[in-house]
Structures are given as C-alpha cells and as structure tokens.
Amino acid sequence: MARTHIEYDLSFATPAFVGDAAQQAQWRTPPLKALIRQWWRVVKAPQVSFNVDGPYGLRVHEAQLFGSASDKQANQSLVKLRLQDWAGGRLENSTWPRQEMGKIPLGKPGQVIRADLYLGFGPITPASSKKGLAEQVRRAIDPQKQRNKLSVFFARTATENQIDEVRQAIQLASWFGGIGSRSRNGWGSITLQGDTIPRLPPSPNVLAAYCQPFRGCFTLDRDWPHAIGKDELGPLVWVGRRDGAPFRNWREAVLFLATVRRSVRCAAKRFGRNQDISANQLIAYPVTQSNNGKWGNDERIAGSLRLKVVETGQGLVPVAVHLPCAVPRVLFDKLSSSDQQWINSHQLDIWVAVHRDIDQKMNRLGAAK
C-alpha cells in the first residue's frame, strides 16, 4: 500500500508576505497547495508531451489529483494539507530592520534605492512626500522566529505514481519556490525539510527529467512555465555567488538578489524596444517607466526567472532558476505585427544575455568553481 501521510518541517529563509483576507501575514495552506501545483505541472508536463487540453492533457490529470469544481467534472482533491500552526506574522512595520538594509545604485550617478524596496515594492510601500505618507511594510512571517510543520495527506485512492509526483513537486518547491507577494524576487523563500529532501539540488542529473532546451520553450503553445531551461552549459540553475561564501542573514541575501535583478534588467535593457514592446517587458510586466500602450496597467507577465534564498545550515545561499516560456498568447495577440516580429527576432538573444550576466555573479549548478 502506498504511503498516505508525509510530514515536513517548514520555514522561510526570507520574510514571507503571505496575506489572509485582510492582507495580514498568516500561515495558510492555500498558497502552499498552489505552489505544489505549480511545480507538479513541471513534473507532469513531459509525461503528456506538454499538452494542456484534450482527454489526456495536463488539465485532466491535475483535476484528478487536486480536485475540480467545474460543471463537467467535479471531484475532491486526493491531496490535503494541514499546518500545525496558523499564527499570524510577527515581523511588523515597526520592527522592520530598515537601518540594516543595503542599497543598490540606479541609473543616474548618486541615485540609489534600498534593496528591500527594490525587490519588495507592493508589500513594502515607499514614503510619498507628495501625499505626506510614511513608508509602510506589510506584516510578514519572520524567518528568524517562526517555524511550522506541514502534513501532506493522500486519499487511499491516490496511486503510487500520483504520490510520487507530488513528492517530486515538493522537492522542487523547496529548492526553487517561494510563496506570498514578490516571491519570485526572493521573498517568502520556503524550506521544506523531511522525506529525504537535500537542502540544494546535489547535481544537474537530478533535474534532467524537468529540463528542456530553452531555445525551444518559446512557442506560443508553451506560454506557461512548463520546464526548467537548459543550454550548452546545463540547466539554467545557479547556486551560490561566485566566491562561494554564504550569507550570514537575510538582509545580506536580499541585497545580493537585488543586485542580480538590477543587473539582469540592465542586460535586457541594452536591446531597447520596438513600438509598444521593450526587452524588459519580456522579463516581467509591468515595468516602471516603460509603458505598453496595448497592454495597459492591468495586464501581467509573471517573471520566468525566479530568485530564491536557501538555508543550508551553514548560512544562506542564493539560488536562481529560469523557466522559459512564451509571452502569454492573449497578450501577444494584442501587439502589432511589428512588435510580434520584434519579439520573435530578439527574445532568444535577450535571454542569452541575461544568462551570461547571471553567470558572472553566480555559479551554475554542477559547474567547476
């Protein structure tokens, strides 16, 4: 009989802005289940030849495992999560360590910004002199003081293959995932310990089943994060900064991630723009001071480059992973034919430049140091 209950020790390496209904930080299972589902799709996608729809497509398998409430198919989830503690976050605006935050340079000489503001705009709201408003930081789960336990239960009807797929997804989530606001910038970097999960992926070989050549990941039928990219150097996974030294605390780690993100934006920016589209909009959208008249302010492109911090026991280690995918079809179709052609001609070169830039700052997984 398949094992039907697995437990994990749960913690964060960086503050987690995980909001409840009132946008106040609290341990909650829905974002954890959403994270597991995201990485389960990466596990399952190659088994269905990356087909989303159809009688044997990804949606059908996902509904069978995680439940569905649609008119055509309604069934309960075979996976249930339980947290030991549902306490609220303890890191509040009044105790946010502003004075310990490093700063990164912006475009103009002498222009700098605090690393936490740069990575956390939204949950961290800068002061507004025009409105007379002070800076506010939304309450967060404190990575230094708060821990939890996660129990994962499987229905007796779950197959061994389904259970194994979820276990693989949880392993990937622990290596590369985060939850809450701005988690792709490194906030809410989650650690799930137990079930023999190593803190970091031990070699590129363990990721082989989840990787695809990144140059083939931009077809319009793959406009969702379906695989970890790889190039001639291996998986597009970076672990640790170039000198190999871990960070002593999350403030140092956030400063480094902010430096990486800023540098990536600069590397893309060198490719400029066409009519409505710019290189930086392909990294993530919206972009400050880079409008797209066809998309407006309400559309979103989630960043396919994910930043993460991992607690190794000897210190904090930065991690980056790229899950390349096409511009969402609904947004691509809104662009002019000139902008569409510009994307098709430039997006590979833009991402090659981004990868090379990260190679200068971090170590490729498995590369000789």
Rank of each mutant, 00 (worst) to 15 (best):
L207N: 01
I301P: 00
Q136V: 14
L365T: 05
A13V: 04
H322T: 06
S77Q: 02
W250G: 00
K80N: 14
F332A: 06
I104D: 14
L236M: 13
V18Q: 06
L307K: 00
D357I: 02
C211N: 06
N344F: 04
L172R: 05
H226V: 04
L65H: 07
I190T: 03
A2H: 11
P286W: 04
A258M: 11
Q341V: 06
P30L: 10
L305K: 03
E135N: 05
G244I: 06
A302T: 08
Y118A: 08
L65N: 00
Q340R: 15
D359R: 06
G19A: 15
K130G: 01
A16H: 04
V319W: 01
K72W: 07
S94T: 11
G272Q: 05
D20E: 05
Y118R: 01
L192V: 13
D349S: 12
I358Y: 07
A69C: 02
A158Y: 07
A69H: 04
I170T: 06
P126E: 12
D359G: 09
A284C: 07
G180F: 12
Q111T: 10
L316F: 06
T14I: 08
S70G: 02
G122R: 12
T4E: 08
Q281T: 02
D231N: 15
I124N: 03
F154V: 08
A21E: 10
Q47K: 11
Q162W: 09
I301G: 00
S189R: 03
T159H: 08
K294T: 09
F12H: 00
R356M: 07
E311T: 00
T159C: 09
L58Q: 05
L200F: 15
N148T: 08
S129Y: 08
W238E: 00
W250A: 00
L78E: 11
E252S: 07
E232T: 09
S174I: 11
V352F: 07
